[in-house]
Amino acid sequence: MYKVVVDYEPKEADNDVLREGMLAFNEKIVGERDKPFSIFLKNESGKIYGGVQAFLGSESVYIDLLFVDEALQKQGYGTQLLLAVEQEALKKGCVFSLVDTWDFQAEAFYLQRGYKRIGELKDYWLGHSKIFLRKNLKKV
């Protein structure tokens, strides 16, 4: 007998069981598993002020999040981080980059750096839209 249990403070290990199950299922279908990696913006003492969490596949990189501390925004660090992700993806043979953002976050940032809007889910969360973007990394 199984039961459905709601848990507002799940253990990381419990969530890992779910994630691993889904990743293993996907891997059976597509033949690969995306590889997570991070790039950090640190000061001389090693304190983190921003960074990127992303996932590499054989043909694409998915940018899960890109963050720069508010005090350092508008100084080019976001662009440096994005370029670092794209360069890493190119080294690994990726041909395109994917990212999603909220309508109140960074769509203009990505558009200014060559990303194209490929979709939008309107009124997705508290009246805000989720926007999906893609950039071809290799010149045709």
Rank of each mutant, 00 (worst) to 15 (best):
Q105I: 08
F132I: 00
G21A: 15
C94I: 05
E9L: 12
G78S: 02
E86L: 07
K47E: 13
D103Q: 08
V140A: 11
D14W: 13
F67A: 09
Y115W: 00
D16W: 07
Q87D: 14
Q80W: 00
Y62L: 12
Q112F: 05
I63C: 03
G21E: 03
Y2L: 10
R117P: 03
L133N: 01
K135L: 09
L82K: 02
I48G: 06
G51D: 06
A24D: 11
Y8K: 12
L72E: 02
S97R: 04
R113A: 01
W102N: 06
F40H: 05
L72H: 07
G57Q: 04
D7Q: 06
L121W: 13
K139C: 07
L41N: 01
K91R: 13
E120K: 10
G114V: 11
Y49G: 12
V52D: 03
K138R: 14
A106T: 03
Y115H: 09
V61I: 12
G50F: 04
E9M: 14
V52C: 07
S58F: 07
K74C: 06
A13W: 00
D123A: 13
F40Q: 08
F104C: 02
N15E: 13
W125Y: 15
V99K: 00
F109Q: 01
K91S: 14
K3C: 03
P36E: 11
E59S: 13
Y110Q: 01
L98Q: 11
D34A: 10
L82F: 03
G93D: 03
E32C: 09
Q75V: 02
S58M: 10
I118T: 14
